[in-house]
């Protein structure tokens, strides 16, 4: 930000695109550097490894828990809970969003409620849900459901409402029935927004299952995280924390990529 006059012809170009490989390469280098510092800092005595663990230890911990069967068993528990909850969120959220998007009366009745729940931190309901459903799988499924369903409802609704009304008019002028308009115009038109809802819901759902398991449970990756946390076993703790984080990151990024792909196909 030196206070000099921009050079002719360079000015705006500094905001334009550069070569395609530049970004991933710099990103990789920087992540590599981060891991190297994380690994080396305790070895050089800069920080106490008790507090930070180290990447190389992740590997040995990973191997250990994989061989003992602890890893796969708990991943299975968490994944089953998550998948049930998220599947229910999709099954409930998309139809409800479609209804609220197309029906003004339903919207007027439910919109305030949906908005209120959408804005509030719904995970605050966790202790109530545990009280109702116990500490087993059911409560986790419900936590995932209420975490994920609202972004899906809200975005699906917005998607339907933001479909260009001219498309529907064009369809009607070619003799489309109300059903035709819904199936052939509104539904395909709202797909990008539904995907956005799915991506946001996915993040919320994963957060939900982790928090619910951490709060109280007998199995699952979240359960392991609090157990190792309470035992101050930082290597295991960091391993599982990184595991769920990388999973969440990867899942959300994958849906984000699908979204991007779809948008570039459609030229939105």
């Amino acid at each position: 930000m030196a206070d000099s006059a921009p050079k002719a012809g360079r000015d705006v170009s500094s905001f334009s695109a550069d070569s395609r490989w530049h970004k991933p390469v710099v990103g990789l280098i920087s992540v590599g550097l981060f891991l190297a510092v994380w690994e080396m800092a305790p070895r050089l005595g800069w920080i106490d490894p008790f507090y930070t663990s180290a990447p190389a230890r992740m590997y040995s911990v990973g191997l250990e828990v994989f061989q003992s069967g602890e890893l796969m068993e708990n991943i299975r528990v968490s994944l089953v809970e998550f998948c049930w909850g998220f599947a229910l969120a999709l099954l409930a959220g998309i139809p409800l969003g479609l209804l609220l998007g197309t029906n003004a009366t339903a919207r007027a009745l439910l919109d305030p409620l949906v908005t209120a729940l959408y804005c509030m931190p719904r995970l605050a309901l966790l202790p109530v849900i545990i009280m109702w459903l116990g500490i087993g799988m059911e409560s986790k499924v419900v936590v995932v459901l209420i975490g994920a369903v609202l972004p899906i409802i809200v975005n699906t609704m917005a998607g339907i409402r933001e479909v260009d009304p001219n498309w529907a008019r064009a369809a009607v002028s070619f003799g489309a029935s109300r059903l035709d308009v819904f199936v052939k115009v509104l539904l395909p038109g709202s797909v990008p927004a539904v995907l956005t809802g799915v991506r946001l819901g996915l993040g919320r759902g994963i957060l939900g299952v982790v928090i619910a398991e951490m709060y109280v449970s007998v199995a699952g990756v979240g359960h392991l995280i609090v157990t190792y946390g309470a035992a101050m076993r930082v290597d295991h703790l960091v391993f599982y924390s990184m595991l769920v984080s990388v999973f969440g990151f990867a899942a959300v990024t994958a849906v984000g990529k699908v979204e991007e792909r779809l948008q570039s196909w459609r030229g939105d």
């Binding site: 006059a5 921009p6 050079k7 002719a8 012809g9 360079r10 000015d11 705006v12």
Partner: peptide, 20 residues
Amino acid sequence: DGLIAKEGRVLVNGREVNAP
């Protein structure tokens, strides 16, 4: 105006300009 790169010369009042 000097907003993009060019070859050749633009003279204003006999003086070459390369920037706004």
